[in-house]
Amino acid sequence: MKLKSASIILLLAWSLAPLLWQLYTSFSTDQALVTPFETMANRWTLEHYRSVISANPPFFLYLINSLFVGILATLLTLIIALPAAYSLSKLSTTKSNLIRIILVGCALFPYVLLFLALLEIARALSLGNNLFALALPYTALSQPLAILLLGSAFTSIPPELDDAARVEGLTLINRFRWIYIPLLAPAIASTAILVFLFSWNEYPIALTWISETSKLTLPVAMARIAGSSIHSVPYGAYAAATVLGAIPLILLVIVFQKPIVSGLTSGAVKG
């Protein structure tokens, strides 16, 4: 018992320490950051938060941009992956296995290597600096995982439910509305969250597709602070931005812990 509690504390410390350090940094004056072991009168400050919130463009714009791209990509992914997963579950074993292997291959592909060609596509079709367009590569890159997860969920629906509905006169769209979507809600939620997290966190494509400051997504905007000057990164302000940017994700993970775990683990079981 003692050992277990100690291990849990160790785990929490390991996971949260870097974040807590950011939290500490975000409230410390620049003076305190430079000399942490000296006692001083004005140790704490809200200055970093003020500067982040009043920056131009305001920090929240990046959050909204990321949120927008994340939600759009998630919706598009589901709209395309749900029918595809249904189709996959209806194919013969040999065909569906072949498709699964292709999808696993795509899921394993280090997609960073695609950025140059994707950039060329963006240039050719004038998709740069457009948040709607940015959701497209995210949708495409999310397909393998989404189809695999949803496909295995579809195979768990008893075929007789489908048959009974067809006899009753339900069309394919009716069946999605009345049977598949309600029955697959947990798997859909898992998939949606994983796709959303991917889109929210994606860096190389957002970096190359978006250059206008007001359209940056959060990861790129944050990295730009780093790139602005190698030697004097405004760490205090940056830490404040990290804390503000992390809050929505921490809430997301706490609220959706179950579907995230089940999504990742059912993906693992499927192999």
Binding site: L12, L16, P219, L249, I250
Partner: peptide, 15 residues
């Protein structure tokens, strides 16, 4: 335990 995985790599890289 999941939080490190959920945060954007770039953000924590600067951290």
């Amino acid at each position: 335990a999941l939080i490190p995985w959920a945060l954007p790599t770039t953000v924590m890289a600067l951290g």
